[in-house]
Amino acid sequence: MTKPLLSVNNLVVTYGARKHAVQAVAGVSFEIFEGETLGLVGESGCGKSTTGRAILQLEKVTSGSVTFDGEELTSLSPGEMRTRRRKLQMLFQDPISSLNPRRKIKHIVAEPLIIWKEGDDESRSHLVDQMLLEVGIDPHLAGERYPREFSGGQCQRISIARSLVANPRLLVCDEMVSALDVSVQAQIINLLSDLKVKHNLTLLFIAHDLAVVKNVSDRVAVMYLGRLCELGPSDDLYAHPLHPYTAALLSAAVVPDPTVGLSHHTLEGEPPSPINPPSGCRFRTRCPKAEARCAEEVPELREVRPGHQVACHFPLEAVPVSIQS
């Protein structure tokens, strides 16, 4: 982890125009280092998926910059961006609908190679077979079949094979295990972490499940209503959250162990509408620690502990707080 492979700087994505404008992403900055997995968590509507899509320029970026491997992506023409996408791949939540139902598995996986005119038929089919084997799908049994003949977990494996066949450097995984049963989810998480090492991948892992994100990530960023609240090393962030929102999220999460018990620090209400976000700190309307300053001044992300940043005027004390609280 030496230099950042991806830097996102003050990214803003706006949907709609003038009085109907919604800032889905309202100034987000982070870096992902080579070989690292950055987790991005938040509740529905916080802008985490939009952030992921904006990195691949699948959403129009209103302002801010996205630099991948030293190159600015936001100023590229669609044609130029297309050639860069080979190095940036995305995995989606619904693996069945993200595969073309009318094409055979071996064609689906070979398509990136055909688009990039790589090798001849023979070398492509060899590569496809090898890739399918790596994700645990038997190419001789599966190659001639269609996506509908496979379960969700198997389709997710096929999606992974397709995304990796052209040797990408960055994978953006958007809720890629959320729809899977826990035993299958564990298989896919393990597969992903093996392939990550083998293919030297860098990952942005977007999900709402705190336990899944902690398991796969080196660092975690927490998002609320279009902004980052906190960013830090996974274990440190989960053990000693600095932002009141992170602490609330963690206390709402349940552990499959009846002896741990329930926390009684659950948040009241629901996130406000991003059409008309609160002034100052966007979390202040639900924050137990909010004061007058929070309404006036937007808290910037600042480093409080080594590698651990928080956007809060009154961060929680850095004393060990057990998640049982």
Partner: peptide
Amino acid sequence: STPRIDAPS
């Protein structure tokens, strides 16, 4: 196979 929030990453 359930990831746990109280297990190390």
